[in-house]
Each structure stands twice: as C-alpha cells, then as structure tokens.
Amino acid sequence: MSDSVPMTPECYARLQEELKNRIKVDRPKVVQDIAEARSHGDLSENAEYDAAKDRQAHIEGRIAELNDKLARAEVIDPKSINTDKIVFGATVTLFDTDSDNEVVYQIVGEDEADIKQGKISVTSPVGKALIGHTLDDEVRINVPSGTRIYEVTEIEYK
C-alpha cells in the first residue's frame, strides 16, 4: 500500500508520540520481561515467557503500523482549506429531515474517527457520501436502518 493517509496535525502528533512511547518504553520493558521469564528456566511450560513474546509481537506490529502510517501521512490542516465544498477536515452541520435534528460531524482520518466526539472517518459511508457536496445540498446516505436524508446547513474549516 502506497496510498497516502490523510490526517490532521493533531492526529499526526498523537501517532508520533505513540510511536516514541512504543519504542522507548514498551519495547525495552517487554525485552526485560522476556529476559526475566527466560531466567525462570524451562521455556516449554513458561506462561510468562509466552505472554511476554505475544506482547512483543503486538508491540512490534504496532510500531511497524505506526511507521507505515506516519511515512504515508498527508497532514492536512483544516484551517488552511479554502473551498465551499465538503472535503477532508470539514466540520459539517447537517439537518436530518426525518428527525428534524441537527448533527455536526468533522470529517477526519480513520485513526482519529470517534463518533462520540462527532468525528467521522473520510472512508466511512457517511463521510464518503458527504464529500464533494456544498451548502444547501440534499445528501442521501444509506445507513443500516435505511436511507437518511440530510440537508447541508453549514460547512466550516476550523
């Protein structure tokens, strides 16, 4: 995979911090845990050793994943975007015509999506459906419970 990974500056910084922590804290700790478990003798029946090796595999896998994402990162600062269309980084206010409710979503990368914070992934069905629309557009989005119809009432880049 050589596709770029869109993310906000905040997400990029958070992933860099996690990578640094995995390399400087988690990796040395698990190496120490493996050495300690080895010192307990027979490795064939050593649950501590097996658990430490599993943790090591998980940590190394996450380090590789973070390195890959950061190498392919396309950092996009929403404040620098100047368009009237919905694109990555947009904070969109939608009016749900069925429920007469307003919802606000920010379109972000997969690593920062959190529906409780109103952050949806650009690759999610809702995120994909919103991309390219402009103010006052009617957007039909297929969700598990059926088709929802939203009207775009505000687009901000903040």
Rank of each mutant, 00 (worst) to 15 (best):
G89K: 03
D77I: 06
D100W: 03
D84H: 14
T93F: 07
D98S: 10
Y105F: 15
N82G: 09
Q106S: 11
T97Y: 01
S99D: 08
V92S: 03
L94C: 10
V92T: 11
D96S: 08
N101W: 10
D111Y: 06
E102F: 13
V92N: 01
D84I: 07
I81K: 04
Y105M: 12
D96P: 00
S80E: 15
F88I: 08
L94V: 11
A113G: 12
Q106A: 09
T93Q: 11
I107H: 03
E102I: 07
E102A: 09
V92C: 09
L94W: 03
E74N: 06
D84S: 15
L94F: 04
V92Y: 04
S80W: 00
Q106L: 07
E74V: 07
I86F: 01
K85Y: 10
E110T: 11
D98F: 13
K79F: 01
D111C: 09
S99G: 06
V75H: 07
V108E: 13
A113P: 03
E110Y: 10
D100G: 06
P78Q: 00
D96A: 11
T93C: 03
N101K: 14
V92H: 01
V87Y: 01
D84M: 08
V75M: 10
D114Y: 02
T91L: 14
V108L: 10
D111F: 07
S99C: 08
Q106F: 03
T91K: 15
E74T: 08
E112K: 00
D100F: 15
T97G: 05
E74Y: 00
A113H: 09
F88W: 00
T83E: 12
D98Y: 13
E112C: 08
Q106M: 08
L94M: 09
E110H: 13
D84E: 15
N82L: 05
V75C: 07
V103D: 02
I86Q: 01
S99Y: 12
Y105R: 11
A90G: 06
D84G: 10
P78H: 03
I81P: 09
A90P: 09
K79D: 05
Y105W: 13
D114E: 11
F88H: 05
V75S: 08
E74W: 02
V92A: 00
E110D: 15
G89M: 00
E102K: 12
D114T: 05
F95W: 14
T97R: 14
K79C: 05
D100R: 09
D96V: 12
S99T: 15
G89Y: 05
D77V: 06
F88S: 07
A90M: 09
N101A: 13
F95H: 13
I86W: 02
Y105E: 07
I76D: 06
Q106E: 12
P78A: 02
I81W: 03
I86K: 03
D98G: 07
D77P: 08
F88M: 06
A113E: 08
G109D: 14
I107R: 01
S80C: 01
I107F: 01
N82S: 13
V104K: 09
D96K: 06
K79R: 15
K85A: 12
P78L: 00
N101Q: 15
T91R: 15
D98L: 10
K85I: 04
I76Y: 04
V75E: 04
N101M: 13
K79I: 12
